[in-house]
Structures are given as C-alpha cells and as structure tokens.
Design a protein around this nucleic acid. Structure first.
Lengths: 158, 158
DNA sequence: GATAAAATCATCCTTTTGTATGAAGGAAAA
DNA sequence: TTTTCCTTCATACAAAAGGATGATTTTATC
C-alpha cells in the first residue's frame, strides 16, 4: 500500500516501463547464469517466482486501488430523547437532602400517602412526617405537591 | 474476485500448497526443457513471468478482498424532545374531563392548594373541592398526588 | 471515643384535603 | 321542551398532611 503510493500518479507508466526493461535485462542475464552455473537453478527460480509474484501483487494493488475506497454511508437515525433520567446529584447535595428523604420524596411523587410510604419502608407514619417536614424545609416549600413540582424542576426526581 | 471465491475458506491453504507443488514440478520440468531446447527460452520466461504475475495478482486480490467492502456508518442523532407539550385530547375526552376540571388539575400539579386555586379562579374553595372530587373519580384516584402522576402519564398535563 | 449527621419514633395541635350530599343556574343536546 | 352535563356553592364529617418539639438510636467521621 505504501509502496504503491510511491509509484502512482503520472509517473506510474514510465516507472512501469523502466521496471519491465530491467526485468527483461535481468532475464537475459539469468539466461547466461543458468548455462554456466546449472547447480544454483533453484535459487534463481525462487528469485524469479518472488519477483513476479511481487510484480503481480503490485499490479493487483494498483489496479484494485480505486475499488478499495471505503464508502461511508451516514444514516441519520433520529431518536426520541426522553432518555434515561439522570439524577442531579449536585443539587441534591447542595440542598442537603438525605437518602431517606429522597426515598420519601420519590414515593410521594408516585402518589403514595404518608401511611402507604410508612408501610412500604417499614416505618412509622410519624417518621415519614418528620422526613417530609425536613424535606419541605430543605426544598423551601410547604406542601407535597409543591415539593414534587420543585424537585422535578431541579431534576431530583424523574 | 469470483476465482478467489473458489479457493477461499478452510481449503484455501491446502489448495495453495498443491498449487505450489505443481509450480515446483513445472519448474523442474522447465529446467530440463531449458537445457534441451535452449532456443525457446523467451517463451518459457514469459510463461513463468505470466504465471507468477498471475499468482501475485491472485494473492493480492485474496488479501485485498476484505478491504473492498462498504462501510455503513449509522449515526444516531438525538432529537430534543423537550418540545412543546401536546395535550392528549383523546384521553381527555375519553375520561370526560371538563375545562374547569382540567384547569384545577393543572394548578394542582403546580403545587397550589385548594384555597390558592380558589383565589386564582375567583371561586369558592368548596367549588374547587367539588371539581377535584369529580376529577379524582374520573381519573380513578383518591389523592391529588396520584391524580398528578396519572395525568402526567396520560399526557393530560405537562 | 467524641462529635456530628442521619434516622427513628412520639405527641399535640392546626391546616389541608377528601367524601358525601344537596341544591341551583345555565348551556347544549336529544 | 325536557334531559343531561357543567358549573357553582354550601354544610358536615373524616382522613390525611403539616408544624413544632423532644427524645433515642444508628452511623459516619474525625
């Protein structure tokens, strides 16, 4: 590939011609050699084989080159970006909301009552009330619906 | 291309070996020929050249084959879906939710209390309560947080 | 181990929310 | 025109939610 780059373009034909001449000369020279040193025939044969095989490879690469060009077909696939919810950890820690509080908040947003949340988390309703109260303080709201709305805006809940 | 197809796969190496053996045999045969008929050397030389050049081309094609295939690049472009909220009118009429009820629902989802909603709409709290009760019946829920959650899921509110 | 933060629960009291029920005026449909 | 639905409002009661406060127990963290 890198080799073919050296011998491509307008000079390609010229170089090809020169190479062919050289090869013919080499053949003639080998002819004499063959008569004189008959014993070393295999070496020459292999040399010739390698030489012409290389030539063939070179020709093939040169001829095949335009066919190797890669066709990039870029298909634009539009995807709805409702994407996965990414929790806003910064805001969460900025407000100092704890794990339990977040948990309660999430269940709140799903429409559960304090009693239901207490049952789900195996806690007393009073505990849930405490958590929610703290939550409201931290979110600076006074109702669960407000908390849900604000938390959603801050990407604390989906 | 079509030729290489015949000699590709697992049998490739075997066939290659056989071919090489045949070529070596041919060379040996040519050796004798060369000594006997010295005059016809050029013909053999060309034959050998053509043979090995063909071999080279065949090898090159075989090696280059995987590079010819086209590459399809699928680019997934995320489309922002923050877009304008489209109210689900079908669901709305299916559930039989009235304008006022929807209005109350929207304000609910924004975190307003019944009293605040009443003030905003210049209505009595009792009226808001009536509306919300009807709303809950139609949405088959029993709490405003549930109503908000379900309504959002049904695309009745943003 | 001490300190701080988080989590747990309770009690008392107020506000909000929800349910049930009834009623009356107005607009649209049958 | 009658009926139905929407809208409005009221009263009374029940349930849920919220605020204030205090206390105990974990759990980190230094």
């Amino acid at each position: 590939m890198t080799l073919s780059k050296f011998i491509s373009g307008k000079k390609g034909i010229l170089i090809y011609g020169v190479t062919m001449a050289a090869i013919l000369f080499l053949l003639k020279w080998l002819e004499m050699r063959l008569i004189i040193i008959d014993h070393a025939f295999e070496i020459y044969a292999v040399s010739i084989a390698v030489l012409f095989t290389s030539l063939g490879i070179w020709i093939a690469i040169k001829l095949a080159r335009p066919k190797i060009k890669t066709i990039f077909v870029e298909r634009i696939v539009p995807v709805k970006n409702d994407g996965p919810f990414v929790l806003n950890v910064e805001e969460l820690s900025r407000l100092g909301i704890s794990k339990r509080e977040l948990e309660v908040l999430q269940l709140m947003s799903e429409g559960f009552s304090n009693n239901e949340i207490a049952d789900k988390l195996f806690l007393s309703v009073n505990t849930i009330k405490t958590h929610s109260s703290r939550l409201f303080e931290k979110l600076e709201v006074s109702r669960r619906t407000q908390a849900i709305e604000k938390a959603r805006r801050l990407l604390i809940i989906p």
